[in-house]
Design a protein around this nucleic acid. Structure first.
Lengths: 334, 334
DNA sequence: CTGAAAGCGCTAACAT
DNA sequence: ATGTTAGCGCTTTCAG
């Protein structure tokens, strides 16, 4: 059996309460402190965190649930979260949706079971109405990163997808492009809708030509981008291509190269995300940088507020504007 | 306040013990079961896991500590672990070394504090003697993935780095290469030593020429590979290059291309790891595939054994042999 | 199959 | 500054 607070008390010739107080940073007399210190060391005492959590009914940990915890893409988000939570003396514990249970719904229990004080769910998939309703019903401290709904009383943080595409197309327009094709994303990804809408809206805003054949779907993989490009080239006629993520942009690039086209001389191509390799391919890719770190910060900030304030906290959908990164994959037509 | 087992008992007109038994799958009479079920539903009762853990002094969770939890490279390892742990009804909880605390040493407490029943540490950095000694001293259930020591009484799992390089060089030799250069890795990575040793040993075994100028260091990044290749080309004279990871292989490839060389016509290049992009670059990269899933399985298997058996378990260093993946980056000289 | 009672290790009044 | 006491919510004998 592990040593307990009681063993420490006995060895240090004092009481449990004093030990407890010492452990929690409250003042004790100099010589009892000495005794305590050496007793703890001698016994190799470690406080039982379950007992503490039972009586305090809080854990000082926030649970982070990601659909795939080792998704490199989330790295920036996690760092943003950690920075904020650590500043408030919370620890982070991670749960991977790909393991343990199945869907995010199953992790809702973590708070009610007393495992964590609050939750951050990270995923870019669309979230079910069922999950959203459950969250609204049980009123536990939670914030969503990725999909969410504006009118539900849930705090959610996401990149402003529509704005990002908007930036891309305005940039292309500024350098003289009038005919812009688009590779859309998968239907189960929340961003797909917003990015596609962003494309259509920007076209309309700028009075650019819209052709049904200039939009083609993809699964957001390199293969998908490759195939999409092949499809688009059957019709042709565009001078620029907006791929709705960098992976498909890379696939499209490869396809163009293989078919003997040169980028950006023959086509301009832009992506979305600014994944690490975007600056390593040839030509380096003009794209939109995801504000991952800020998203993490905002999410954690929001969660801390919800956990601390018993009174009303703004539960809204926060969209963070991403940044245009100009590299060498576009040709100036002017 | 959350409802407790007591509330459920009262509502179902029975005792705490019966509720507890029901919750833990022990037999209860049909009609008490009904009453319990509806009481639990009505109260939205969730068992307090801290109370349970306090009394049972086990958690049924294994903690996984990774130096960078969102490192895509670990994904396969994590899936291997999850498969095994879930089969034994353990849950996985992840801790990221980049956050919360600093080094792996700080996470050793998790077991003694009762947060987890066992630990798996994942990292490819060299591990300090201090950590290894602490682990040996405190006898908690733990297994290491990555660096470890053969003679310490600690179970550790790693890829057989030396064997991997050996495979690569024997392959090159089989297709006629006699002059083989090498890009080494960073000093703080445990594998660097073994891969470099593998290079030297294989050369010796096959009676191939060894030149000090044909080994150059790198930080394992693409930039590092690029620079290393540039360095190597100052001396030249080799027909094949073994990059000790895929990233540097890609950097070296880029460098060769930029200087007007063609791969594999002018040089053969091989990597190590088989990262996702290895099959996407031009030419597709011949490399060694890390047995990540198996490593995860072995690690979890070992941990489960340690946790279950009070008696002696084999604490050894397990090296898993990786597989050669032949693609198009090597020229057959015969 | 069920209930009463003890106790897991800790914190938090309360009293001194 | 310290000791005494009660109790957090659960499991687990032990009786019945």
């Amino acid at each position: 059996m592990n040593p307990t607070i009681k063993d420490v008390a006995r060895l240090a010739r004092t009481s449990k309460s004093t030990v407890s107080r010492y452990l929690n940073g409250q003042p004790v007399k100099k010589n009892t402190e000495e005794a305590l210190k050496s007793a703890i060391k001698e016994l190799d005492y470690h406080p039982n965190i379950n007992a503490r959590r039972l009586v305090q009914s809080r854990t000082q940990v926030v649970g982070i649930v990601a659909d795939d915890i080792s998704n490199n893409f989330y790295s920036g988000i996690l760092r943003g979260i950690e920075k904020v939570t650590n500043a408030h003396r919370y620890h982070c514990v991670y749960y991977s949706g790909t393991s343990n249970h199945q869907s995010e719904i199953d992790f809702l229990d973590l708070v009610q079971e007393g495992q964590v004080d609050g939750l951050i769910f990270i995923s870019f998939s669309k979230r079910s109405q069922e999950l959203l309703e459950r969250i609204r019903d049980i009123t536990i401290p939670i914030v969503l990163v990725g999909d969410g709904e504006a009118d539900q009383q849930i705090l959610s943080v996401d990149v402003d997808n529509q704005y990002g595409i908007h930036e891309l197309i305005h940039y292309l327009h500024r350098i003289g492009h009038e005919k812009v094709a688009f590779i859309a994303g998968p239907n189960d990804i929340a961003a797909t809708e917003y990015r596609t809408k962003g494309y259509k809206n920007a076209l309309e805003e700028l009075g650019l030509e819209y052709k049904r054949e200039w939009i083609v779907g993809s699964d957001w993989s390199k293969e998908g981008g490759y195939k999409a490009m092949k499809e688009l080239l059957k019709f042709g006629g565009f001078t620029a291509l907006v791929a709705s993520n960098d992976e498909t942009a890379i696939g499209a690039l490869l396809c163009a190269h293989e078919l003997g086209f040169r980028v950006p001389q023959d086509f301009s191509i832009v992506g979305f995300d600014d994944i690490e390799i975007a600056r390593w391919i040839y030509p380096t890719l003009t794209t939109i940088r995801q504000p991952l770190y800020e998203m993490g910060e905002k999410a954690a900030d929001g969660l801390i507020n919800i956990m601390k304030n018993t009174d009303e906290v703004m539960k809204e959908r926060v969209l963070i504007r991403p940044e245009l990164i100009v590299r060498n994959s576009c040709k100036n037509l002017l």
